[in-house]
Design a binder for these strands. Structure first.
Lengths: 195, 195, 195, 195
DNA sequence: GATGAATGAGATTTCATTCAT
DNA sequence: TATGAATGAAATCTCATTCAT
């Protein structure tokens, strides 16, 4: 029985997603360069050739992965409201970040590793800035609204602390217990702002 | 008339250093896997074959690089005193860290990138822990000595902040001005401890 | 429309056989070490890379060659009967050996050359003993059954003679005419046993 | 103190012999191709470069080794008498052969392995025939003088047996005890001739 | 859409040989 | 004579990508 165009489309979408999920896992765990198309294909239980039916090249898988990943992550953050954070929203925001981190460990691991090798994906840096910019602004607004004496300085400290905490979670999850770390970070944010 | 053993020793030391420096630069800039022995050799203006006169394999270059790097970095920190930090020492320690970071950008870039791909270098994780452990202890002692109400929590926050600041320096040096970042971090440490 | 699994299986079998045949010929004629993968590939009219689709390494080709070779040779000998040789069977057995030798000259040449360099193939010695042991037993039984006064001694002499004759056939086929050699060996076996 | 020309000559001879002995051992044990100039030099405790002061190339070491080896072996056999062997002389000759074999295991191992890979040394086959020819004649004369009914046939059988016994000694010295093998071979020679 | 055999460019590695000293 | 650093050719091996079916 021939399939309808819609069914074909569905299959395509599922297969593509399967390839991307598999690739993400392997890239994150073993690195982009140490992962071969063969490994991806065999883990996804498809043929090597089929991969090229969905992606022009290995690096295109990476590109799409990054793009999707950014969207998945930042869309969930839902920062498109009035642009002013209340204290609860700020806390919620950080907690959300940790939650998303835990749920997308693979993506984050890959993100961080690409951060250190920008030549892999030329478009990566640009995307990152585009996404990260509004968040900096949001934070900056919150810090100022809380009466910080030096909001620029506090933004740097808080951003660093969050970034560092995320790095610990992803790269050395056994050094600090994750929930304690989360709590420590949140508390410290307020200590920093308060002065 | 053969060269004297000392002459040969000299040549070997210099050439080995040349290879390591060249490799470090390329590894840090382009990544370990994207850097070929050919590239290293041609940048160092030697033949591919000679590389193998000095290193058993490409991965051995990486291993020696890590080992030397750790020593270079952590030896400079000189943490072998009485084990108690005064406030000045604490500040000095962080400043030293930043200074060393700036002077060994390549090493740190490589470190961070390997942190996310530990399977590259098996010995890496072990070395890291061995070196980082005493520093955690030192910090913990300082935090307690300053009357922190929750030293475990503060250690996590401060460690994260430092790690994150280093990551910003290395991976995105244009986002924050480095000297301001350094100042912000130091100030925030005290805010965190003070509570 | 993909090929059927059976078709692929067929291709793989044939191609693998082609590679093994080609390698055997070159190994036997020019030696294992002097034969490069490039030579094998170009003689088999395939690409170098394809070789590695079928064999993990060059030495694995050798291993499989030895394994197959042993089986081909010793399976043909069909020594799995009651374990007692009649005179006709003994003669037939030796003749068979010469016939197989002539038809598998390449294999035997390779065997003999590896005999002298056992470190090439670690598994080789073990396989050889496993296969040769029963034959010694069979011969020993025959020699005793014919009333030899010193069967141990006669076994040594006969084994040596056979081994030497095979070596002449393989390494210096022009020194003695092969059919005369065969006849001489068979006759001499009986002279030795008879005493 | 400058050395006299004779002393220099002496040194040269000794060094050359050292290199050849070392190379022989390694070639015999590990094979010609698997033995590198570096290994030879380091085992002989000289520099790589010095090797080329005494030999034009690696293959020239092999050539000289073969040449010397043949002479050493066959000169010791002292077959330059009247050309007629008595029974005692025949026995003595075979015993001598075994003795020499035992004392020059390395040479023989190398000989046998080259027999199977003649392309290694082009001149090898020619040398072998030149040396072996007179021996065949000597044996043929003895066999005839003892009243053999078919001396051509017996020569083949005896030659094969000797060759085979030597191969066993060299390649599989544990299969048969060497002194028993020697005895068995000698006895069997007479059985073969006697008919 | 799906397969996996096949290619070829390029990576790592080895090693006989040369050469400045 | 003696050294060992240096070369370069060639070997082994890997893998993204193509293509016939």
């Amino acid at each position: 029985m021939p399939k309808s165009p819609e069914q074909y489309d569905d299959i395509r979408k599922q297969k593509k997603q399967l390839i991307m999920n598999t690739a993400l896992e392997l890239f994150a765990e073993n690195g982009y360069h140490t992962t071969s198309i063969s490994q991806i294909a065999s883990k996804a239980k498809i043929s090597k050739g089929l991969t090229y039916n969905y992606f022009k090249s290995k690096s295109e898988i990476l590109n799409e992965l990054m793009e999707h990943g950014f969207n998945e992550i930042y869309d969930n953050l839902d920062i498109n409201h009035d642009g002013i954070l209340t204290e609860e929203e700020f806390i919620f925001f950080i907690k959300e970040n940790f939650r998303i981190l835990r749920e997308n460990m693979h993506h984050w691991k890959l993100f961080f590793s690409l951060l250190l090798q920008p030549q892999v994906s030329a478009t990566f840096a640009a995307q990152y800035e585009e996404k990260a910019g509004p968040i900096f602004n949001l934070f900056f607004g919150f810090i100022k609204s809380r009466g910080s004496k030096n909001p620029e300085s506090d933004l740097m400290a808080i951003s660093s602390m969050l970034e560092g905490a995320f790095l610990y979670c992803v790269a050395a999850p056994d050094v600090f217990p994750m929930d304690k770390l989360e709590e420590a970070v949140i508390n410290s944010c307020f200590k920093i702002i308060r002065g």
